Structures are given as structure tokens and as C-alpha cells.
Simulated assay, not measured.
Amino acid sequence: MTTSVALPRRTLVPGVFRRSLPRRRTRRVFTRRQRIVFGLLNLATFLVIWQLVATYSGIPSMFLPRFTDVFGELIEMSREGILWNNLGISLSVYVIGMVISIAMAVPAGLVIGGIPWLDRALSTYVWALYTMPRIVLMPLILLWVGINDTARVTIIVLSAVPATLVVVMEGVKTVDNSLLRAARSFGASRFQLFKSVVMPSTVPFIATGIRMGVARGLLGLFIGELFTGTNGIGYIITLAQKTFNSAQVYAMLLVFLLFCVAMVSSTQYLERRVMEWRKQPD
């Protein structure tokens, strides 16, 4: 006589007893050529929409000039030698301001972030300067140095230094304490700790801080040229505004936008290279 054993009923959970689970969707990686083509198509679409809206929407040209008129102003300014001379002046002032900013912000961030009592004493003032609108500093800057290129460099430095400083300062605090204790146990000096432990761990934060400083420095450049410049991109915008030449205003804003994109893209490339360097095995 055979006996049958009742097996426990199996509770079916949706998706558990399927023969094949759904595949995870992986993010598509575009090649460099595909990214360039997509970017050009995106830009061309934007320009076509701009031209159509400005032509057929009935918006006065003073408020929205056609892209062909804006492009014509760029060609005319380039032919007259106005565009490239003033663009070169703005670029030189910006580079000088950013070199000074990086030379000041990176060492200061490493020192403030690495010394606890100094961090407690100065971090409040650093964050206050970081959140302060730069435009409120212009009267003081004009009073200190006058209306010249030094005023523009000063506003760039005051804009870029706090942005870079806070990122580097906070990055130093993320260094793993176990690594510091291990290095001290092997008799490492303070300089060796900084060189072999703190600096490699903080390099990505330095790259990110420089990118933040570059973006803030561009705002400082634009503010400085609008208020103090007798040349440069902002000076042309001010003159075009006084003569109600909206096409020239749009043209110089477009040049400034492309200038900003180039600067920020270069720092993003630097940041990606630093992250790739960090991921490489020792």
C-alpha cells in the first residue's frame, strides 16, 4: 500500500518563478562623433525656431531680432575689428583673474579644511562671502581701485575664490581617518601625510572647485564689464543698449554664452580626466 505525501502549496510571487527575468536597461553610451552630431542638430534646430518665431510671431525686432540680423552684426563687428579685439581683452582679464583665484583658493582651502580650529574660525566668513551677491560689492571695488582693469580682476577674484574655496575646504574633511592613522603609525610626517594621503584624496574636489570657480568668475567678468569696462564684451553691450541696437546686444550675449560654454567645458574635461586618473589601479 502506497502513501502519498502532500507537499506544501507553493506561493507564487510575481516574477520569482519566471524562466527569464527582464533584462536591466543599460544606459546607452554615445560615441564622440554621435555627441557632436547631436549637439550640432540641437543647435541648428534652436536657431531655426528662433528665426521662425522672430519672423512670423509679430514680436517687434527690438525685443526679439531675427538670428540672421544677429549673425550679420557679428560679421560686421568682425569686419570692423571690434569683435576680436574686445573679446581678446575680456579673455585676458578673465584668465588673469582666474589664475589669481586658483592660486589663492586651492592652498587656502587645503589649509582651512585640514586645520580644525582654523575651520571653525573662518568657515562662517567663507560661506558668507560665497552666498553674498557680487553686485553689492561693486561700489566698494570702484571706491578701492577705480574704474579700470584692476576692478574687473578684483570682482572676478571675489566671485571665483569663495566658490573654489568651499569645495576644496569641504573635500579635505572627507579624507579617510583610517588612512591618516595608518600613515602616522608608519612614522609619516605632516608633509608626507599631506603629499601621500590628503592631496590624492582631495584632487577630485579641487577639480570640481575649479569648475565652480570658473562659472562664478564668468559672472564676475560680466558684472565687472557692465559697470567698469571701457572695452570688452560688456562694454559693447552697454554701447549697443544706449543706441537701442538689440541685434548687437543679442550678438554679444551669444558670444558671451559661447565663451562661457567653452570655459566650463574645458573644466569639465579636466574633471573627467582627474576622475579617470583616480579610477586607475595603482
Rank of each mutant, 00 (worst) to 15 (best):
N86H: 15
G88K: 06
G88W: 08
I89Q: 09
L91V: 12
V93L: 15
V93A: 13
Y94E: 00
G97M: 07
G97A: 06
M98C: 02
V99P: 05
I102Q: 05
A103S: 12
A103C: 12
A103W: 04
M104K: 00
A108W: 09
V111A: 13
V111N: 04
I112K: 00
G113D: 10
G113Q: 01
G113R: 02
W117E: 13
A121L: 15
L122V: 04
S123Q: 07
S123H: 05
S123F: 06
S123A: 15
W127A: 07
A128Y: 06
L129P: 01
Y130M: 10
T131D: 06
P133Q: 08
V136G: 05
V136M: 13
V136W: 07
L137H: 02
P139S: 12
L140R: 00
I141L: 07
I141T: 06
L142G: 13
L142F: 11
L143P: 01
W144I: 08
G146Y: 03
G146L: 03
I147P: 02
I147W: 00
I147Q: 11
I147F: 13
I147G: 00
N148T: 09
D149L: 10
D149S: 12
A151T: 07
V153C: 10
V153G: 10
T154Y: 03
V157L: 13
A160N: 02
V161I: 15
V161C: 12
A163S: 14
T164D: 04
L165Q: 02
V166S: 05
V166K: 03
V167C: 02
V167A: 03
V168R: 03
V168G: 05
E170R: 07
G171S: 10
G171P: 07
V172N: 06
T174A: 09
V175D: 11
N177G: 08
L179K: 12
L179E: 11
L180M: 15
R181Q: 14
A182K: 05
A183F: 01
F186A: 09
F186D: 07
G187D: 11
S189M: 11
S189D: 15
R190G: 14
L193T: 04
F194K: 00
F194H: 04
K195V: 10
K195L: 11
S196Y: 13
V197R: 07
V198Q: 12
M199V: 06
M199K: 04
S201E: 14
T202G: 05
T202E: 10
P204S: 06
I206P: 03
G209V: 10
I210H: 00
I210T: 01
